[in-house]
Simulated assay, not measured.
Amino acid sequence: MENEFELIANQLYEKGWCITDHFISDDFRKELLQEQQDILSHGQFRLAGVGKGDNFKVKTEIRSDKVFWMDHTSLTLLQTKYWELMSALSRAVNQRCFLGLRSFEAHFAMYPPGSFYLRHLDQFQNVKYRVVTVILYLNDEWTEKDGGALRMYLPMEEGEEKLDVYPKGGRLVVFLSGEIPHEVLTTNKERISITGWFRDIEY
Rank of each mutant, 00 (worst) to 15 (best):
G51C: 12
S25T: 10
P181G: 09
T80P: 06
M152A: 08
R91W: 04
Y129Q: 15
I192L: 11
G196V: 04
L75F: 06
L121P: 06
E160D: 06
V132M: 13
F45G: 09
F116K: 14
E202G: 12
T73K: 10
L7C: 09
E157S: 03
G53C: 10
G159A: 06
V58H: 08
I19G: 05
C97M: 10
Y82C: 08
L136S: 10
E144G: 02
R119K: 10
S115W: 05
I192P: 00
E141G: 04
A106P: 12
H120A: 15
V132L: 13
I24K: 01
Q36S: 12
E144M: 03
F98T: 01
Q11N: 14
E202D: 15
K57F: 06
D164T: 02
W17S: 14
R29P: 07
F5A: 13
G147N: 04
F124A: 14
E161F: 00
C18G: 06
H120N: 14
K189Y: 00
I194K: 06
Q34I: 01
W83K: 12
N55K: 07
L77C: 08
L85K: 10
I19S: 07
P155K: 02
T187M: 03
N126H: 02
S90G: 14
K59M: 14
V184E: 11
E161H: 01
H120I: 06
G16H: 06
D54C: 05
F68T: 09
L47W: 04
N94V: 04
G43L: 08
D38T: 07
Y82H: 11
Q79T: 05
K128F: 04
T76F: 04
W142R: 08
D38G: 04
P113A: 14
R171V: 03
F45D: 12
I39L: 11
K15G: 05
I8P: 12
D146Q: 03
Y111F: 11
G147R: 01
K168S: 09
R102T: 12
D200S: 13
L172M: 11
S115L: 11
K145W: 01
Q34K: 07
E161I: 00
F124R: 10
L40W: 07
G159C: 03
T143Y: 01
N126E: 14
F23A: 09
T143E: 13
E161M: 02
T80L: 12
A109T: 10
I39G: 10
C97F: 04
Y13P: 03
S87G: 13
L89V: 04
M70K: 08
Y203Q: 15
L40V: 07
R46W: 02
T80H: 11
R63V: 10
L121Y: 03
M86E: 15
L185T: 04
L40R: 07
L40P: 06
I192F: 03
I135A: 13
G147Y: 00
I180T: 04
Q79L: 04
D122N: 09
L32T: 02
P155S: 07
D21F: 00
L47R: 10
G170L: 02
V174C: 12
E14L: 02
H42M: 11
M110W: 06
L77Y: 03
R151S: 07
G16V: 07
V131R: 15
K30E: 15
I135D: 15
D21L: 00
Q125I: 02
T73H: 08
L138R: 12
F56G: 13
F56V: 09
S41E: 15
I8H: 12
Y153E: 13
H22I: 01
